[in-house]
Design a protein around this nucleic acid. Structure first.
Lengths: 118, 118
DNA sequence: ACGGCGCGTTCACATCTTCTTCACGTCGGG
DNA sequence: CCCGACGTGAAGAAGATGTGAACGCGCCGT
């Protein structure tokens, strides 16, 4: 079988093969459900950018996010859990309160430089 | 307030993506709250100019600044803290007593000649 | 047909953030 | 010395997000 060069996105140690519906974490395959996969792809295609829940819902679910629907949050949680399980110490999905989520690989226990001013 | 204009503003090492709600400091993403972000955008769109609190409030909060309301001051403080944390040694928000605030990148050193050259 | 399962959705509650407002400290001018 | 303007930290309420669990559903092997 050919491994087509179709769509292959690399985010840190993640290798996402959109065509095949496969995700490799440091070479080892992850087991994601369809929703989890679509959500990851949606985020990956906008890596580094903040994607609003509305946009995410449109991209991964296809439709309009209804007011009060928390599906995105729930799935971001599931996805985070699997990514954390596969690549401990790495944080991929960042929350931007009031804006949305952003995919960007970073060590979890960072240095306390900027953001946290509490 | 508004957060949606397809703009990309650059102020020194800051890259503000108004549409996205994202701010990059030397390439690294900052974590700002909606208000902090709107305030920064308001200042950035008037970079180099002094913006009165009334104007700032109108731009970032959307409404009229009530007498005695210190929200602007408080948020300028929060914003300064995060900017300082992200880009130490740089001063972006300058206070003009009795007039307002002005956004302009400058080394936060004791130098303070006439104006920030321009 | 039956029972077990994985999946997606929705709840209810736990936590964390954000916003506003207050209180007090500092500085400089009159 | 008094006062207005601004800096700064904190308290409380409101709002946003994190999280575990219950439910219903379709699929699959038996």
């Amino acid at each position: 079988m050919e491994t087509g060069h179709g769509e292959l996105v690399r985010i840190g140690d993640l290798e996402i093969r959109a065509r095949e519906g496969l995700v490799l974490a440091s070479g080892r395959a992850l087991t994601l459900s369809v929703r989890e996969f679509d959500l990851l792809v949606a985020l990956a295609r906008n890596a580094g950018r903040i994607v609003s829940r509305e946009e995410l819902y449109r991209l991964a679910w296809g439709g309009t996010l209804r007011h009060g629907d928390r599906s995105c949050d729930v799935y971001v949680h599931k996805l985070r859990a699997k990514l954390e399980g596969a690549l401990p110490g790495m944080q991929f999905i960042h929350t931007h309160v009031g804006f949305g989520y952003r995919l960007d690989p970073a060590p979890s226990h960072p240095f306390h430089t900027a953001a946290t001013g509490r």
